[in-house]
Design a protein around this nucleic acid. Sequence first.
DNA 1: CGAGTCGTTGATTCTTTTCAAAGCCCGTGG
DNA 2: CCACGGGCTTTGAAAAGAATCAACGACTCG
Lengths: 233, 233
Amino acid sequence: MLSVTRPQMQREPLDLAASQPSGGALDRRFRSAAAKTLEARDHLFFEGDDKSHAYLVEKGSLCLYKTLPDGRRQIFGFAHAGDFIALDCSDSHSHNARALNLTRLRCLPAHVLKEVGRSDPEAGLQLYTTLSEHLMAARDLLSTVGQRSAAERLAGLLLALARRSERNGFDPWKIQLPMTRLDIADFLSLTIETVSRTFTKFRQDGLIDLTHSTLVTIRNRKALESLAAGERD
Amino acid sequence: MLSVTRPQMQREPLDLAASQPSGGALDRRFRSAAAKTLEARDHLFFEGDDKSHAYLVEKGSLCLYKTLPDGRRQIFGFAHAGDFIALDCSDSHSHNARALNLTRLRCLPAHVLKEVGRSDPEAGLQLYTTLSEHLMAARDLLSTVGQRSAAERLAGLLLALARRSERNGFDPWKIQLPMTRLDIADFLSLTIETVSRTFTKFRQDGLIDLTHSTLVTIRNRKALESLAAGERD
DNA sequence: CGAGTCGTTGATTCTTTTCAAAGCCCGTGG
DNA sequence: CCACGGGCTTTGAAAAGAATCAACGACTCG
């Protein structure tokens, strides 16, 4: 391994949605755009589709993913209220977007987005910052998936969800999972069995309670944090 | 697994450097900026450092990586001549950058970059496209690392290097590896032993020749491509 | 020539996946 | 109200793939 003699600052890993306090100049453009509603499991778009619009999530949540020809799936993020989707600059979508539950979005035509980026410096800046955050999120997930064990990955996800919970004014100790085991597995690059077993292990070790398969109560945050930090016990 | 009934278009996986034909408006800004030279193994910057500049590589190559507290390392890209580094919009560097060999760069002060993005629409657009490409590269690598086997990952890397070779006017069948086994391992999230064994296996199976550990000749491109595509034999 | 770095190979271990089966939850309909 | 069915989750046993530990070989630079 490479030895680096400099101190390292770790960003919060797995910050699912790098959503800033909404209300930027870009937000305003979206809020006046056409609305759209999706049922659970509906796709907003598929990989390869022409990119007609960029989107702002107003309510609900979606998962963003890619698949290999044989069906293996990699989720690289979940988008929640306040998050932007498909901000990148390409003519066709580079991934799929599917609603996890009832979802409402605002749809800004792609050419308008490009025009806004050019003509409105403030919106352009927010576009730039948001894209940067998406990039950092992707790289963080990459190093999580590439370097961490199953337990470390799941601990990181639970803490990220807890932080999100807290940010939204909910109890940071009780996490209502918005996604299934399969979604978690495909996000963390594990199988559902491994995810399930890791949940069970966390419960047995007293790190969490599992009232229900979708309701996690954190019992030992310290332990989860030290796992997620990746210090290799 | 999720069943999607739509056709899927795969982007080229592992396009290491999404470098456009240089000569954009952004390039011009950099070319007139201060130059800097790094020896092999020198760091350009570390994670957490204040971001003073963004960079354009003029000659040589660097690797961009993150490390966990215990030293595990994830390389998420290599930057070669014509590539931009640290274009993202944050006050401190989110990763490390280290020269693989003798490297020359142009350094544009961060505040100038921001100003250029705001005031020069054409440069702003190139900034936007380049950042988008970096984002797609990160997501591609994520799904490679998350979903593919060791052989599939290495095949993908070799083909990406071959394409780069070709793009630069070199023989697309002979690849001069610019990085060590450790770099490859940390890029593909494998160990050096697994990388080495996979090279050996490719050689034994007649997919490549290994004149030297850093000189790969492609003998069966079809087979490599079908591996890299990820169709699961 | 010798030290050191990098790469290869072998034997073994470990984590995670795969395959298989059973349990649970929840909505539907009798 | 309870039985039935289907999807999701859990659990177990076996297998596979990659990591780890260890040793050796090749090449480079003093």
